[in-house]
Design a protein around this nucleic acid. Structure first.
Lengths: 148, 148
DNA sequence: TAAACACCCTGAAGCGGCTTCAGGGTCAAG
DNA sequence: CTTGACCCTGAAGCCGCTTCAGGGTGTTTA
């Protein structure tokens, strides 16, 4: 099948597929001799599905490469896979907690201005001027990212 | 004060300050005639604190610019500020829900392999091969991002 | 048969919010 | 006069794509 068809089945864009090939998440496909179009088969689809599935779980390319490698070495033990998923779960739950903190702070902030007034006296702006004392808590958000 | 001192007080790096100046979150400071070093005063510090505070709340530069503008027009009504915070809160809570979904899926996945075996029979890898049927739910993560 | 349109190709640049690097200049202390 | 802490600039790198510029191919329709 051609790239457009693969993209449709895998529910991603043609560009994403070409990108995955470039960065090695997908093996380079065979090419049509005449027009140089890429041609894919079932195993490409399976691998792409695997990758997309991992991405839907917010795994990084690095993490996915580890899983792909494990997939290619069926005789090995799968402890490392479990470890990877556990670590990833850890990332996600840390991120959730951070965002919940953020949400609480934002709610507090929002309550500083219940009755809209002039910016000059807006409690929100006033609050943002002052540093909240989270001394040492150098609020860096961790690495499970999102896209728009 | 010089940039290093400002960075220390504002708890960010020197590079971040220079970057903020470049993208317009911070006004360009005055410079020392002799050595071209940047020189900051209290109002720079206040503005930087404001910006860092907004960033700690995961606001985008675009959002922060809106707030900075409001800060500079004290006579205007602050409805737009409230709206911005409300919208931002909305982003954050959407993101939290997405991540909680993710967490649930990862937990389910993790349970496919309670007793480590060979990769060949690892339930996790097997599950990742199959597309979870979230038909149409084209799991894109929304835009409140995090860093490492 | 030609034009229109859908699909394919490549390489480079853009996104956000920084961080890092390369390659320098400045300044105070010993 | 050298060491080391600080300052400067501009460009590139990070991630996971998306978008753009500029073109070729292949099928359908007027």
């Amino acid at each position: 099948m051609k790239i457009g068809e693969l993209a449709k089945i895998a529910k991603c864009t043609v560009e994403t597929i070409r990108y995955y090939e470039k960065v090695g998440l997908l093996a380079a496909s065979s090419r049509d001799n005449i027009n140089n179009y890429r041609h894919y088969n079932k195993s490409h689809l399976e691998r792409l599905t695997f990758v997309r599935h991992c991405r839907a779980l917010a795994m990084s390319h690095e993490e996915i490469l580890v899983l792909l490698q494990a997939r290619n070495q069926p005789e090995q033990k799968c402890d490392s896979i479990n470890q990877l998923i556990d670590d990833h779960l850890q990332h996600v739950s840390v991120r959730i907690k951070e965002l919940q903190n953020l949400e609480a702070q934002l709610l507090t902030l929002r309550q500083q201005c219940q009755t809209p007034t002039s910016s000059e006296h807006c409690g929100i702006l006033q609050d943002l001027e002052l540093a909240i004392d989270d001394s040492g808590n150098n609020t860096k958000l961790s690495h499970v990212t999102g896209s728009h």
